[in-house]
Structures are given as structure tokens and as C-alpha cells.
Design a protein around this nucleic acid. Structure first.
Length: 255
DNA sequence: ATCCAGGAATTTT
DNA sequence: AAAATTCATGGA
């Protein structure tokens, strides 16, 4: 399908999403029971998935120009936006997003990916796609074995996940989408292992609450240095965060 | 060996 | 209300 204002690499690799692998010249992206094989050549998106699904998953129906216009009103955002133009926020499954970000606390991205992969192997279903083996993300309610969770190298986060798995229902997750950003965040923070930062990630990456602005150690450092008032990017604070965050970790890697 | 990593919960000032 | 401590584990 033809796309504009979209960059697959930036979107997948900016740190918002964990379930993808790059093999040969394309990405294998996993969500729910799907394996999506996908690559981008200029404005062409080539994939085994339907256009409808990709449009929803990558939020391609969002007016990108409006977002960018809002961000570059502040000069600090001009460079990051130019560097990573085409980055979109992925519309993740709320359950997968929740468990992923509970397991993310105080850890680096490779370790987060490893734990998610181990949980999928231990609690998910095996599927063969393209002659390769994949495991689906554990379904809501299935993460009910604490001993097995502890084997997923989650550390103290295993207890949080075990509890959240028994507390959360489909109705709870569906209801979050109906709530305002503030209400949804407050509901999420009632759950063990979910504080302000993780709640914001779930709001932004799976509930389309684009006002959410997750503040981790990187962003916190940046805010202190620049005195940036991120509320000026309303209602796209979340996009501002992603551009700043990606620019920060990229700059760090090149040092 | 020592420290800390995209935090949160608990305890202590 | 803010600041320090603890929580497992892997990696630098």
C-alpha cells in the first residue's frame, strides 16, 4: 500500500514497541495472534497484512501535518522532528502494552524484550510462520503461574504481573478507552506495578491518549536541562515525547 | 567488585 | 510532601 508521512524503521525502533525482529530485509512484527511480515520501500509498504489493519495499527489515519505543526512551534522540536520524520505512535493491544510496560521498569530495552519473549514461550502459543517459530503473547488470565513467571527473568516485577493478571478483565480494558486521559491514568495506577510513567505509556501506546507524556529518566534529564513546558504541545504531548526520547537515546549511542 | 538500568511501593525524614 | 531505601536480575 502507498503511505505518506510514515517511516517504518523509526516507528518500530524508537522504543515504544518491543515485539519485532529484523530478519533479512524485513521486519516480523507480532501482536495478538498475528505475525506481520513487513518492509518499506520509499512510499510503498509491503506486507502480508491488510491495508485496513496496517492503517489502524500504525495510526495512519491521523493527520500528521497537524501533529508536526503543533510540535515545531517550539524550536527545540524542529531538529528531532526533521531527524525522525515519519515516526508514528503504534496502536498496541492494551493488555500486551500493560504487561510489557510493567516488565519495563528500571530495565534496558534488550532485557525487556527478553522477558516478553520468555513469557510468550512459557504462556503463549507456538506458531510457525515463514518457516520460522514464533510464540503469541500470553492471553489475559493465562499468566497465572508465579513460579513460571519468575523463570522469565522478571525479578520483582513477576509479582506485579501475577497480580495484575488476576485483577484485570476485558471489561476493565474496554472501559479505559471510554474514559478521559486523566481518568484512564488514575484507573491504571490503582493496579500494582503501575505508577505514573507506566500508566502514561499504556495511555499513549494503546489507548490513543496522545496527551500522555511519559517521563522516564531520559526525559526527566532533558526537561531539567531545557526547562521545556511540554503542555504547549497539547493535544499531542505524546508525540513530542517520542521525538525527544528517540533523539536523546540516538545521541547517546553515537557518543 | 560495584553500580545502575526507560520505576514503583514502602519506609523514613 | 519530599527524600531515601528496597525490590531481582543482567550487563557494563
Amino acid at each position: 500500500m502507498l503511505v505518506k508521512d510514515f517511516n517504518l524503521k523509526y516507528t518500530l525502533e524508537c522504543g515504544q514497541f518491543f515485539r519485532y525482529k529484523k530478519l533479512d530485509n524485513h521486519y516480523y512484527v507480532q501482536t495478538k495472534n498475528k505475525v506481520i511480515k513487513i518492509q518499506q520501500n520509499d512510499n510503498q509498504l509491503i506486507s502480508n497484512e491488510s491495508n485496513e489493519f496496517l492503517t489502524e495499527f500504525f495510526n495512519l489515519n491521523q493527520n500528521y501535518n497537524n501533529i508536526i505543526k503543533t510540535l515545531i512551534k517550539h524550536k527545540d522540536l524542529v531538529q528531532p522532528v526533521n531527524q525522525f520524520y515519519g515516526l508514528r505512535i503504534i496502536n498496541q493491544d492494551p493488555w500486551e502494552c500493560m504487561i510489557s510496560y510493567i516488565s519495563s521498569s528500571a530495565r534496558s530495552i534488550p532485557l525487556i524484550k527478553q522477558s516478553i519473549e520468555l513469557m510468550s514461550q512459557n504462556f503463549g502459543e507456538k506458531i510457525i510462520f515463514d518457516n520460522k517459530t514464533f510464540y503469541t503473547f500470553p492471553k489475559l488470565g493465562s499468566l497465572n503461574n508465579l513460579e513460571l513467571l519468575k523463570q522469565c527473568k522478571l525479578g520483582f516485577r513477576a509479582d506485579y504481573i501475577y497480580k495484575v493478571n488476576s485483577l484485570v478483565t476485558e471489561e476493565f480494558l474496554n472501559n479505559l478507552k471510554e474514559l478521559s486521559y486523566k481518568e484512564a491514568k488514575a484507573e491504571l495506577m490503582k493496579l500494582p506495578g503501575i505508577g505514573p510513567k507506566v500508566a502514561d505509556c499504556i495511555c499513549l501506546f494503546s489507548l490513543k491518549k496522545f496527551e500522555a507524556f511519559p517521563i522516564d529518566t531520559w526525559i526527566n534529564k532533558y526537561l531539567k536541562q531545557t526547562n521545556l513546558d511540554y503542555q504547549q504541545f497539547h493535544p499531542y504531548q505524546g508525540y513530542a515525547q517520542e521525538f525527544i526520547y528517540y533523539a536523546q537515546i540516538s545521541a547517546d549511542k553515537t557518543l
